[in-house]
Design a protein around this nucleic acid. Structure first.
Length: 726
RNA sequence: GGUCGCGUAGCUCAGUUGGCUAGAGCGUUUCAUUGACAUUGAAAAGGUCAGAGGUUCAAGUCCUCUCGCGACCACCA
């Protein structure tokens, strides 16, 4: 044994040993309790980051339950991560001077497929480097044929029950990325906007009404002006008509409660096609919806003279021209507001009317809520229960259509022979044509029976498929596996995707299987740098977990993420902490080395003092004390582990092994060991190895390396039973 | 504006259901070390537990308020 532990000499071989011996493989064993976790599938578009290393909590649980003798399953997978991946891929393209528009749908899809497959292999090997106890034989990908089929079945079932509907309404659309989003993907950014006060002249009398807006260009689509019905200033004007500049449309002044008399002038221009509020007002007052901004971010033919120009340019032009026409009363330059932006590219999103598939969330959320309230699903740490319930109460209908190529194409089809005539340019909110949904593409149109119907070009929001992950993965492995391991025991993930993923898994899981997808939710914190800032490429503070493993070993990295933290709180990561844990691992190694070396030497000494133990009262006492202390430690350890207090369990072992076992007991028994007393050495060895079992879930490599040194290369600590002793 | 979290030793953080002189890692100081480990050992210095009030025999721990930091949510055009 070297003086210092060299993780690189062992880790990859050890992992291979585990994998080759099928230790990771879960089987059906009706006599055993099950413990199952579905790994949150990492996106198959990049290397793992430190956030993924936090899945070490799952490994700790899995390995712990393996030691307890349960039948464990930790199922790995990869997420195609639709929009995210396409976005990453487009960055690669643009680095080569290309863009998504240079390829047809199939070519682009195939290119991304190759890209993803390569990344997926890489990502999986990185999970291995972390030492994760994953059942690789069962690995799944969100775009596997059998998974897609289940996703389709769920969609069809939702559709048949009226929980999926197609509608045309205002959605968040990124004109740069070329797709719509759900509400969750919108990030509000505070911006310095100007507030423009614009005069709308009356039709039937002299004068004008002034409206305040941050988006003067949308006046091209205005179909009303609204005031609060209680506002005395405007009461007499309700019903009066005004003229919208440039487009010369006559619109009415209407009364609606949503108008805040204290804001601006108390009069609001209403653009139902380009504002969520105005859309609602429009519905209440039966206003016309005139879309003036196209999906390319340019003004369309309804914008008359401004057609073909980008929104930003048109804003400037309109402001200039309003000034010329003396229709601009004033500009408040110091106005701040929040603008919904694309969470990926950061540009302002455009609210646009568009036909999409929506999930009616309320009924699904109600059932999910019940599970959480009744604790059929338990949440750890418990403060997240309230947050989860808030979300389940406040979800809006979920837009699941994405206008991107990379994803699972929606199995919805439009009948061609029953498309109504478009109302020229002007749009109403009715959807065009009749649709049907089918898991397998049928031979004949299910609507008219004769047309060559078209499949929807859109793909699913990634979260729609990943929201089905727990049951979809297990169902594809056969009903026996599914029935044995479902519902899974724990869902462990970062608290940042609680609404995106956890809530939706519960909703879709209970809908599709009538059972909760998991019994417990355990949420971990986010990794930040040592100053508490989010790690991001632009800040340059990203730490690559593989570098840490290279330098200090996987055990050290794993321990550094758990030691001295509080579950669910953010982790401030620092290399110094990894070094500290590397030192701990080295300490473990050297305890082993001490016992190992002396064992070897004593066996060569002729007169071993076997009888010493009875005569040496001090020795006898110390051994008894050690025994008692270990039992106490183990009892506390089991309680902490069962209560998801992993950090504390680790702290306990750390303290015991280093500052009690090494610093105290070894020092106490050292003299006897040097005297050739084999009994005291045996005691030390026994308790050392027992403690390694407790440590194994946290530091799987070093514990296995030492186990093999003592018990033989073919042996393994992984499959030892914790209950056998004490 | 709402909700949640945080504010404990120079730094990063623990502190279970309130209970003896408040802990760890790193850092600092002193000493030790030729039979496991300098990626070591022994010891020391260092905290009005953000502030104020309250409950209690007893509060870092429970309650109320204030201040500071952070996160998430919210339709103010």
């Amino acid at each position: 044994m070297d003086k210092n532990y060299q993780p690189k000499q062992f880790e990859e071989n050890i992992y291979q040993f585990w994998e080759n011996n099928n230790f990771f493989e879960a089987k059906i064993n009706k006599n055993k309790k099950t413990f199952s976790i579905i790994l949150p599938p990492p996106n198959a578009n990049a290397n793992l980051h430190l956030g993924h290393a936090m899945y070490v909590y799952e490994d700790i649980m899995i390995r712990y339950h393996k030691l307890l003798g349960d039948e464990v399953l930790w199922l790995p997978g990869a997420d195609h991560a639709g929009f995210e991946t396409q976005f990453v891929f487009e960055k690669h393209l643009s680095a080569q001077g290309k863009s998504r528009f240079d390829y047809d749908r199939d070519t682009l899809f195939q290119m991304i497929w190759k890209f993803v497959m390569k990344n997926r292999d890489n990502m999986e090997n990185q999970l291995r480097r972390l030492g994760f106890f994953l059942d690789w034989k069962k690995k799944k990908f969100t775009m596997d044929e059998d998974i897609v089929k289940i996703v389709y079945q769920t969609f069809e079932k939702l559709y048949k029950q009226g929980l999926v509907y197609r509608d045309k309404k205002i959605i968040n659309y990124c004109t740069f990325c070329g797709t719509s989003f759900s509400d969750l993907e919108v990030v509000d950014k505070e911006k310095n906007s100007s507030l423009y006060y614009i005069k709308y002249p009356f039709v039937n009398k002299k004068g004008y009404i002034v409206v305040a807006t941050t988006r003067p260009e949308t006046l091209l689509g205005d179909t009303a002006v609204a005031v609060n019905p209680k506002d005395k200033r405007y009461k007499k004007l309700i019903g009066e008509k005004v003229i919208i500049p440039f487009v010369n449309r006559q619109v009415e002044i209407i009364a609606d409660d949503f108008v805040d008399p204290k804001f601006g002038t108390g009069a609001v221009k209403v653009t139902p096609a380009h504002d969520f509020n105005d859309y609602e007002v429009g519905k209440r007052h039966n206003l016309e919806i005139i879309q003036v901004i196209g999906f390319d971010g340019k003004i369309n033919e309804n914008g008359e003279e401004f057609k073909g120009f980008y929104v930003g340019e048109v804003r400037k032009k309109i402001v200039e021209k309003l000034k010329e026409k003396q229709l601009l009363e004033k500009i408040d330059e110091n106005y701040k507001n929040r603008v919904g932006c694309c969470y990926k590219c950061g540009r302002a999103l455009e609210p646009l009317p568009k036909e999409q598939w929506f999930i009616k969330v309320k009924p699904l959320a109600q059932k999910a809520k019940k599970l959480v309230i009744e604790e059929k699903i338990k949440i750890y740490p418990k403060r997240f229960k309230k947050i989860l319930l808030w979300w389940l109460e406040n979800f809006k209908d979920w837009n699941i259509s994405r206008q991107i190529v990379w994803g699972i194409r929606i199995p919805a089809y439009k009948c061609k022979s029953k498309i109504p005539l478009k109302t020229a340019g002007r749009q109403n909110s009715k959807i065009e044509g009749e649709w049907f949904v089918a898991v397998e593409k049928p031979k004949k149109c299910l609507i008219c029976g004769e047309c060559d119907f078209e499949q929807d070009n859109d793909t699913f929001d990634t979260w729609f498929s990943s929201g089905q992950w727990p049951f979809a993965t297990l169902q594809t492995l056969g009903s026996e596996i599914f029935n044995y391991f479902y519902p899974t025991t724990v869902m462990e993930t970062g608290y940042d995707i609680l609404p995106w993923w956890v809530a939706r898994m519960i909703m879709l899981g209970i809908f599709a299987t009538k059972k909760p997808p998991f019994e417990n939710v355990f949420l971990h914190g986010l990794i930040r740098d040592k100053k508490g800032q989010k790690m991001s490429k632009s800040k340059g503070n990203v730490i690559n977990p593989m570098d840490m493993i290279e330098k200090y070993g996987a055990d050290a990295l794993r321990l550094s993420l758990v030691f001295g933290t509080s579950e669910g709180n953010d982790v401030f990561f620092s290399e110094e902490k990894v070094i500290g844990m590397r030192n701990f691992v080295n300490k473990i190694w050297n305890i082993g080395r001490f016992i190992y070396i002396n064992k070897y030497q004593i066996s060569k000494i002729k007169n071993q003092k076997l009888e010493n133990i009875d005569k040496n009262q001090n020795l006898k006492q110390e051994i008894k004390r050690l025994e008692k202390e270990f039992e106490e430690i183990k009892k506390r350890y089991l309680k902490l582990m069962n209560g998801y207090k992993f950090s504390k369990a680790l702290g306990l072992i750390y303290e015991f092994l280093w500052h009690r076992f090494a610093d105290y007991y070894i020092e106490q028994l050292k003299k006897d060991v040097f005297d050739g007393n084999i009994e005291s050495l045996k005691v030390l060895e026994e308790f050392y190895l027992e403690t390694l079992k407790l440590l194994h879930p946290f530091a799987p490599f070093i514990t296995e390396v030492i186990w093999k040194k003592f018990k033989g290369e073919e042996k393994s600590i992984v499959i030892k039973n914790l209950k056998n002793k004490v």
